[in-house]
Simulated assay, not measured.
Amino acid sequence: MNFQTSLWIYKKELKLFFGTYMGPLVLGGTAFLNALFIMILNFNGRANYEEATVVTFVSFMTTILIAMIIISMGSIVEEKNKGTLELLFTSPITDVDIVIGKFLFGVTICAIITVFINGLFPILLYSYWQAPLYIVISGMIGVFLLGTFTYTVGLFASSLAKSQMISLLISVVIILTLWVVGYFSHLFQSTTRKVLFHLHIFSHFISFSKGVLPLTGIIFFISGTFLFLYLTVKVLESRRWRG
């Protein structure tokens, strides 16, 4: 791995994102959806900060999923369609360099959304609802971990697909599968039930919105992130070998 090469890819992705309609669309759209969801759901008869906090971060959960899937769905597939991926393959750039560079870009955008787009609303929670600061911080950490994980799922889907729509579909299927398995875990025996429930994204995320930093949730999102990064590298390696 050459960090300078990964950094070059990272800067290229940032320039492309902020130099086109994608940057304003994703960041502006996320801010708009956050405001819409929170104004409709949060300030409508909420009795206390516990309810307000959970609703706020569930809104963030929805918007970060949408934003990171949109950002990642064309990350690699567009390189294929434009022919630049083959150019990267013939350059002294490894598959790990490509994936790490794109991953750093995704982490940066996720951090921008979490801190600068979502950050305004936890301030309202802290000032208007008198929500404890530790709940606000834990919720923001949960949003960032979920966003990073979602981006790597989309990156993996983009490495498999031949178009952005197929990449989007694969990402949604993976996320929905991890979303719903927990709801059906009670139908299985104890060991299988525990495994399926552990794969339930919502159960891991919701703890963060209640002021808890669950070790299982942190491990789930971080290990899932590294798993999909590894799978993306393997897909690119197989494509390189196939020519």
Rank of each mutant, 00 (worst) to 15 (best):
S185T: 11
S59V: 06
K210E: 11
I100R: 00
E79T: 11
L146T: 12
G45F: 08
V143G: 01
S59R: 12
T150G: 06
K82Y: 09
V96T: 12
V54P: 05
L196Q: 08
P92N: 10
V99G: 00
L178E: 09
S158Y: 05
V233K: 14
V115R: 02
I70A: 01
I170Q: 02
V77F: 08
I123N: 09
G83K: 07
K12P: 02
L199G: 09
I170A: 01
K82T: 15
Q130V: 10
I112V: 03
P214D: 05
V99T: 00
I100C: 01
L176M: 13
Y134M: 06
Q4N: 14
N81E: 14
F37C: 03
Y10F: 15
R242G: 07
Y183D: 11
L176E: 13
F228S: 02
V55R: 04
L104W: 13
R239D: 14
N118A: 11
T225M: 03
H204S: 09
R239I: 11
E78W: 14
R239W: 08
P132I: 07
F43P: 00
R239K: 15
F116C: 03
S190G: 10
Y151G: 01
T232N: 09
L7K: 15
I98W: 00
I175R: 06
G106E: 00
T90E: 07
F32M: 10
L87Y: 15
L236N: 09
L178K: 10
I93Y: 05
T114E: 01
L120P: 04
I76C: 06
G45T: 08
T63D: 03
R193A: 10
L160Q: 08
P214S: 09
R46P: 11
F144A: 07
I135S: 10
K210R: 12
I66R: 01
L231S: 13
F149V: 04
N81C: 04
V172Q: 06
S163C: 14
Y151E: 02
H186F: 14
H186Y: 11
T5C: 05
I166H: 07
I137T: 02
F17H: 03
I123T: 06
I206A: 08
V55W: 05
L176P: 04
L160S: 07
S238F: 12
G74E: 03
V233Q: 08
T108G: 05
G139K: 02
S72Q: 03
I100D: 00
S207P: 03
S207M: 14
L65P: 05
Q130R: 09
D95G: 12
T150Q: 04
T53H: 02
I175L: 13
